[in-house]
């Protein structure tokens, strides 16, 4: 089971949008049941991220203690294919 942390500034808006898009993409690619998603504020990332396999955020983050991927393409669609490739690579590790 891979643990993925999705973060944004307030933890209420963009991380929600990212989380759901990510979920539908991962399920489509056959990862259903093989991952766990959690959501938090970016300020919580330094403390929380050590327990995760991957962190995706819509802001820059400092002191992230697991592999990090920028999640803006989930909102705009621009460069999304590359981001998905990176995420799948992390999940297949």
């Amino acid at each position: 089971m891979k643990k993925i942390l999705v973060a944004c500034g307030a933890g209420v808006c963009t991380s929600t949008a990212v989380l759901n898009k990510l979920k539908s993409i991962l399920d489509d690619r056959g990862f259903k049941g093989k991952y766990e998603l959690s959501q938090c504020k970016v300020a919580e990332v330094p403390a929380k991220s050590s327990g995760y396999d991957l962190c995706i955020a819509t802001t820059t983050v400092s002191e992230v203690k697991c592999p990090f991927i920028m999640g803006i393409p989930f909102l705009t669609g621009r460069g999304l294919d590359d981001v998905i490739k990176k995420i799948l690579k992390e999940l297949e590790k």
């Binding site: 933890g11 209420v12 808006c13 929600t16 949008a17 759901n20 898009k21 989930f74 909102l75």
Partner: peptide, 18 residues
């Protein structure tokens, strides 16, 4: 966006961004 419920309005946000 004025969002009262954290992690709420998933369908709204998802549809809007799409």
């Amino acid at each position: 966006l004025a969002i009262k419920t954290a992690h709420g309005h998933i369908k709204f946000l998802q549809t809007l961004m799409n």
